[in-house]
Simulated assay, not measured.
Amino acid sequence: MNGADPSVYQKDGVYYYLQTNGSSISLWATTAMSKLSAAIPKTVFVPTAGAANSRNIWAPELYFFDGKWYIYYTAGNGADISQRTWVLENSSADPTTGTWVDKGRIFTADTDFWAIDGSILEMNGSRYFMWCGRPDVTNVNLTQNIYIAKMLNPFTLVGSATKLTEPEYGWEKNGFGVNEGPQALISPDNKAFLIYSASYCGTDDYALGMLSLKTGGDPLVKADWQKSAQPVFSKQPQSNAFGPGHNSFFKSPDGKENWIVYHANSETNQGCADRRNVRMQKFTFKTDGSPDFGVPVATGLQISKPSGEQ
């Protein structure tokens, strides 16, 4: 299926899927990710025209915290410099029903600038909000970094933010320097990783990078994270995979397999636009606990369904 910035959340045997729509937020619900394309999306949020969150609605992510559902998303007023991270709340048992309440922006006072791609890390009983930001408030310097801050509650951050990573290597600077789309991944042996997208999404070299949190490390301390010097998932021209990135993770229905879902272009030079399509494949963990994503699977190649699917 066509789309970009895929996100999946599992609860009670149901997979809830979201992607960038641009003007609204929709939810797909399915019990089998291999049948996602057959699911009928339900529009759950349409902003008020002219509002500060009415345009360029990107990268929504769904979570269930403290008995309520939350969607974290990016939006602005139409001008790129206005992009910020926002939160919706729903107290219904089923996120495709009930009322989504706009809880406003989520940010820290020291990072009140261009912000996209909000996501959550849960560790040791605490929650952390991760996002991508451009600290240059004039929006002339487009370099994008990843920040993290502790959450007081699902829609409020506390304290100051930490810049966890910025574009340093050549593979993070194709087009211009970008670290975005942070995604938390906890290994079977309880090690924490942050998988992020690097380089401008309009290039074929959009790819995934990785930060590893040291054992006993504090997620808010940059020095406790180690960045991989090489991308962990990147283009595979022979498999029609250009610019693979902005991923999410899910487990198979029986909990035995780990899967990554991501977007990519099928041909070169298709850019950061509507031709991107959503793909998913199984991955494993190495003996040191780090993930092994392999390489993007070729389009049209038949692979086994997630184990335990009915």
Rank of each mutant, 00 (worst) to 15 (best):
residue 251 K to P: 00
residue 238 Q to F: 05
residue 283 F to S: 01
residue 98 G to C: 01
residue 3 G to Q: 07
residue 289 G to P: 00
residue 126 S to Y: 09
residue 292 D to V: 03
residue 297 V to S: 01
residue 115 A to E: 04
residue 42 K to I: 14
residue 212 S to W: 03
residue 250 F to C: 08
residue 132 C to S: 15
residue 169 Y to S: 07
residue 77 N to I: 02
residue 169 Y to W: 13
residue 113 F to E: 05
residue 286 K to F: 01
residue 81 I to G: 02
residue 227 K to H: 07
residue 91 S to C: 02
residue 299 T to N: 14
residue 51 A to K: 11
residue 52 A to D: 14
residue 286 K to Y: 05
residue 308 G to T: 12
residue 308 G to A: 12
residue 84 R to H: 09
residue 183 Q to K: 15
residue 253 P to G: 00
residue 81 I to N: 06
residue 89 E to Y: 05
residue 5 D to Y: 09
residue 190 N to I: 03
residue 82 S to T: 15
residue 263 H to E: 07
residue 102 D to I: 00
residue 242 F to G: 00
residue 34 S to K: 10
residue 217 G to Q: 02
residue 165 T to E: 10
residue 308 G to I: 11
residue 117 D to T: 08
residue 34 S to C: 11
residue 123 M to E: 10
residue 274 D to R: 14
residue 227 K to F: 04
residue 25 I to Q: 06
residue 301 L to Q: 08
residue 252 S to I: 02
residue 218 D to N: 15
residue 41 P to C: 10
residue 242 F to M: 06
residue 235 K to P: 03
residue 240 N to F: 05
residue 194 L to D: 03
residue 9 Y to K: 11
residue 282 K to V: 00
residue 307 S to M: 09
residue 277 N to Q: 13
residue 7 S to T: 12
residue 108 T to C: 15
residue 141 N to R: 08
residue 137 V to F: 02
residue 220 L to T: 14
residue 153 N to A: 11
residue 217 G to M: 02
residue 4 A to I: 13
residue 206 Y to W: 08
residue 280 M to D: 00
residue 79 A to G: 09
residue 240 N to G: 05
residue 101 V to G: 05
residue 20 T to H: 11
residue 255 G to A: 09
residue 275 R to M: 14
residue 64 F to M: 11
residue 188 P to I: 07
residue 285 F to W: 15
residue 25 I to C: 07
residue 253 P to A: 01
residue 182 P to T: 07
residue 100 W to K: 02
residue 205 D to Q: 10
residue 12 D to Q: 09
residue 170 G to M: 00
residue 80 D to Q: 12
residue 139 N to C: 05
residue 177 G to M: 06
residue 49 A to P: 11
residue 168 E to W: 09
residue 33 M to E: 00
residue 123 M to W: 04
residue 240 N to Q: 15
residue 254 D to N: 14
residue 101 V to P: 04
residue 225 W to H: 10
residue 179 N to R: 05
residue 238 Q to P: 01
residue 157 L to Q: 03
residue 107 F to W: 08
residue 256 K to D: 13
residue 255 G to D: 07
residue 2 N to P: 14
residue 126 S to R: 14
residue 108 T to Q: 13
